[in-house]
Design a protein around this nucleic acid. Structure first.
Lengths: 132, 132, 132, 132
DNA sequence: GTGGTCTAGACCACG
DNA sequence: GTGGTCTAGACCACT
């Protein structure tokens, strides 16, 4: 799986990395147990700082997406990913509110918004089906 | 309209303010032409610095949600809000991707996600209907 | 001659007024000796403050475009307008520099820029010919 | 490249800075990818506050002249500068109108005005050729 | 070390 | 009284 970073972006690089790895998991490009590149090699590949990669990995570990083994290094979490518990749903709702508020201001209907969501969903499912 | 800020939050205060004002517009609590409190009074009300409020107002001005008049202060934009153009839709899609990726990882289905979106949408529409 | 003010504009209202009056002179809509509306009536017409109109008139007087008589009120200057002396040319050059710098950055050629200037010039001359 | 600020000028310091940097780009003293001094060092050099420099940089970023990287600091925009689109040409025309109006009032002909523009253009091109 | 954010306090232009 | 500008000084996130 290829990762890329946008140095101009406002989102911190380590967040970008974490996002992309989560996306990789979502589209089943990264399967449970699969190892991620070492901090060192990924940092070299992307031309970024070791600490940055490390921070991304720790963030993913904290959120239960990866496990960090002494031997194997970082691997995608083997057991179930964190469930969609109440706390998560609340957080998700909180994250969606500003997006939806702006969408409403710009005249988007609920239908249009749902369709947009479906498109994004489809992007992940398509990739999964294709086994890319 | 009551605003509140979470000083502990990771999202900058000025972003929180901008979000809440956009939400107020979305739920029609803030109508076109309606004046917003002066930077000083809002800063005093919220116990924050006037520059922080100023930054939020300028952000909203930049994005076309408010107008800043020479003497009248800041008012909700009179003309149409920025349209849902191609550029915006792309941005929205980009913003939704990490949310949806995580949702998929946590086992949420498209249906569940759509329902969540509908709920948030309903929150705005309800408020609008109630005229709160 | 109809004046209008843009309250949203960054340029102060009094500057907008002065500019429009100078433009009126340039396109010969306002002829030497012609009286301008009283401060009071113009302020009422435009829905702005007396002081603002006053400031615009004083600015014009300072720059030699109008005369302020006790009896007649404000009239377009009877004698020759201020000449294009060295000082003015230097100021003009200073004002043009940032405009031209940005134009160059955006890829405009000297020819395109000159053409743009000619167009604006023509706007004034056309109006003059039409005697609008 | 040497910058200087006129603390007495009516134009805000941050605008002066932005103008000078755009001029530097126009005369090819500042090339794409070239880094600008950090806000702190430039502020120290000019004897002004770092926030003022920051504002200038952000203004330039907004207008697409520079990019702000996470660690690298501020650099001249790598890709093409903003194009001379319709919107820009309208703005330019608006900016030129008061200048030309006054020029006409002062008796400048179209030819003289064009010549003035050419001189300013030449200043930039000369510098470019000299590689100053 | 970089820019981003926030605070505090000041003066000014505008209306 | 409004926002705009500038200063000064602080802490923080990111790299």
């Amino acid at each position: 799986m290829l990762l890329h970073v946008d140095l101009q972006s406002e989102t911190p690089i380590y967040t970008q990395l974490a996002h992309q790895i989560i996306e990789g998991i979502a589209r089943k490009q990264l399967l449970p147990g699969e190892p991620l590149p070492s901090v060192r090699s990924m940092a070299a590949d992307l031309g970024i700082n070791l600490h940055t990669v490390n921070k991304a990995y720790n963030l993913l570990k904290q959120n239960g997406f990866v496990q960090i083994n002494r031997k194997q290094g970082v691997v995608i979490h083997l057991d179930a990913f964190p469930a969609a518990d109440e706390q998560y749903l609340l957080r998700l709702q909180k994250q969606m509110r500003p997006l939806i508020a702006e969408a409403i201001c710009r005249g988007l209907t609920n239908e249009q918004f749902k369709k947009m969501g479906e498109q994004v969903f489809a992007q992940f499912k398509d990739a999964e089906a294709d086994g890319i």
